[in-house]
Amino acid sequence: MLSRVADSLYWLSRYLERAEHTTRLTSVYFDLILDQSSRMGGDRYQRLLKNIHATEYQNLPFDEETTISLLVLDRKNPWSVVSSINQARENARQVREQISSELWMQINQLYLMMSPPYDAWENQPQMLMQQLIQHLYLIGGIADATMSHNEGWQFMQLGRYSERANSILRLVDIHFEAVIGRPPQAEDHMDWIALLKSCTAFEAYCNVYTADLTPARIAEFLLLNAEFPHSLHFSINMMRQALKQIAIITQSHRNQELNRRAGRLQSVLQFSQIDEVLADGLHDFLKGIQQQSQAIHDTVYQVYITFPVVEELPI
C-alpha cells in the first residue's frame, strides 16, 4: 500500500473518532447543565473547552447557542465537529479508490448534512448531536462490514484507537485534577456520571461495579478494563493488534523498535493496579502513557510512511 494512502486512512479514522468524541462530550455537557446550580457552570464549561483543545474561547459566553456554534459548527475552530468531519472527508477523498463505495457514500452524506444551511438544527442541538453520533457509528460499522480487514483497514484501526486512547487520557486527567482537587460538593456525583457517559461507559460501569460511584473504580474502569471498548487498556490493545497485523502484511523488517514500544505500553496497562497508580500520582502516570503513545505514532511514521528512501534503494 502507498505510504501516502496509509497516512490518509490513519487520519481519516482519527478525525472520525475525534468528531465522535467531541460530539459526545458536547452532548453530555448539555445534558449536565440542565440540572446544574448556577455556580457550577463555569467550571464545567472550562473543562469541556480544555478537553477539546478550545481554551482560547474561554472568555466567550457559554450559552447553548454559542457553545454549539463553536464546538460543533464553527469551521474556523480546527477542533470543532464540522472541521473534523471535513478533514475526514478530505482524507477519504484522497483515498477514494481504497475504501468501499458504501463507506465513502456514508462519509460524504455526513459531510453534506453538515454543510450549510443547517437552520433545521438551530433549536434542536441535542437532536443534531444524536444524529451525528448515529452517523458516525454507522460509518464505523460500514467500514468494518464492507472493507477487507487488510492493511488499509488496520491503519484505520490504528488511527481510531490512537485517537481514542488520547481522548480518554485527556478526559480522565482533566477530570480528576479538577474534581478531586476541590472540596467535596453535593453535585460531585453528577460530574462522575458525566465522565462515564463521555465514554459511553455509565451502563457498562454499573454492570461491573453497580451504581456505586467511587473515583478509584471509575479510574480503574476507564483506564484498566480490558473488555470495554472505550477504555484506555482496550484501545491500546487494539492499537497493538493493528500494528502486529500491519507488520505481518507488510513483512516489515524495520519494525522491531515499534513492536517493543507497543508491547511495553500494553504491558503497563495490563499489569498496573489502580491503587498504586493513584498513590503514585495519576497525572504522572497518564502523562507517561501519553508520551509513549506519541512515541508509537512517531515510530509508525518512521517505519511505514516517511522512511528514508536511501535505506530502501536497490544497490
Binding site: 502507498l2 505510504s3 501516502r4 513483512q251 511505514y304 510512511i305 528512501v309 534503494l313
Partner: peptide
C-alpha cells in the same frame, strides 16, 4: 510525490518499502 526515479527506474513509496 509517491514516485521517485533511481537509476532510470521508477519506484513508488509503499509501506513495504519501494
Amino acid at each position: 510525490r509517491d514516485l521517485l526515479v533511481h537509476n532510470n527506474f521508477v519506484y513508488m513509496r509503499t509501506t513495504r518499502g519501494l
